[in-house]
Write a protein that binds this DNA or RNA. Sequence first.
DNA 1: CGCAGTTTTGATTTCTGTCAACGTCTGTGG
DNA 2: CCACAGACGTTGACAGAAATCAAAACTGCG
Lengths: 246, 246
Amino acid sequence: MTVALKKMDLGDAACRDVACCQCAAYELSLCRTTADAGLSTTALDRVVHTVPARRIVCRSRDLSEVVPIVCDGWAASTVTLSGGGKQILSFILPGDMVSTALLFEAPSQLVVEAITDVRYRLFNRVQLKAAVFKNPSVFETLSKAWIEEKARSDQLVVGLGRRSADERIAQLILGLKDRLERRGMVQGGKFDFPLRQHHIADAMGLTPVHVSKVLSEFRRSGLIELSERSLSILNLSRLEQIASLR
Amino acid sequence: MTVALKKMDLGDAACRDVACCQCAAYELSLCRTTADAGLSTTALDRVVHTVPARRIVCRSRDLSEVVPIVCDGWAASTVTLSGGGKQILSFILPGDMVSTALLFEAPSQLVVEAITDVRYRLFNRVQLKAAVFKNPSVFETLSKAWIEEKARSDQLVVGLGRRSADERIAQLILGLKDRLERRGMVQGGKFDFPLRQHHIADAMGLTPVHVSKVLSEFRRSGLIELSERSLSILNLSRLEQIASLR
DNA sequence: CGCAGTTTTGATTTCTGTCAACGTCTGTGG
DNA sequence: CCACAGACGTTGACAGAAATCAAAACTGCG
């Protein structure tokens, strides 16, 4: 159970609003800003949906009229190849929209999978889009999210194209730490880390077997401690060195 | 010299306008739409800049106030690693903006390199942004470009993460053919192909040596013909099969 | 011509994938 | 409470794809 959730143990209705606004505030602020724009009175976005870990949150075809934003939990947007291979395009943390591009068009081949139990809200796309176009602050917020999404995606490309397994995994860990830090979900280099090794593998273009070997090596050399779905960075500078070395 | 250029052998001023509007029309239409929005009277965007092949078009720090759009020629947006490695994030074809995200913020580490001689225009970012926000049709145009950019980027991630060298290269060829086709720059499966093997390598996360081997294999099996910077697809269905197989 | 940037080719190495076995943990149901 | 199944993680032997190293031929161009 994440830090964000603990803060939100209030009444039910309040909880939902706080959940939404608080998470969103970390990165996107879309809920709050849409609320300002008078949109949060719709039936759609008042409902918090839940999906248990390892199940599918939504597929591209569900996204023709609706945009999901995760309130709590981790998810991954994935593409599955005909041959059984899978690639994770991005991890979705609390407050994240699956992809800013969703505002305009449902992507062709995309499945969002829950990593932990996930709570999310659905927003009406047409309304959200209208709000973006009408309200400069929403527009600004959205474009920020877009830029960050783009930057992460570019970094992933560089990682997959030009970096070794060690470097990729070190970068992934540091990248997630960064994003969680901005949400206040890291304390003293330690944070919830619900990813299975196959998630890491699917995100970094590796096999679970090899991920296991790299993580073991990281542990053996005292870089990280990872157990019970919780990760501590023991030697930050060394890890950063590995992540960007070369 | 590209097909698009041939169409444009008119007077100088006319040429520039046609160049801009025509190229942009293929994918972005930004020139035309900004013209509609009364923006093309600025000093900035009347000038067509040129850069010879293999030289740098611009770096991220040049992009704080200005957004380049390529009128003619091929370029690549690249990231260079500390260790000398290089990754091409995308190829920029005539009519393309370097990246739609440029409208909002200059990326941190980015260099745009000319592959062929390149002609481009600079647009004032603030004005362009204002136009986007004010004019629904510009907005629509931009979001289309953004979605396509995102889709290509996602596909690249999948390719780098989960596909073999053959598959990647086949996909690259087909993807470029697609984009050129929409610009009317393909005739009977044949088109200008100014990429050096090291460009392919840097885009697909491979070494030039290995690219050479794969291309040789493609030629040997009668899939493509590639010489004098011109590529013919001889066996389209087979190539498509390789590109998406697995 | 000569030179710098390409492309090709072959030998060898390195990284990562594949296969397989085994151990752990968790939850489920008898 | 125990047996069991399924997901997950670890480890080792081996294979294969692509990188690296090196040398040589080709290309275009000043």
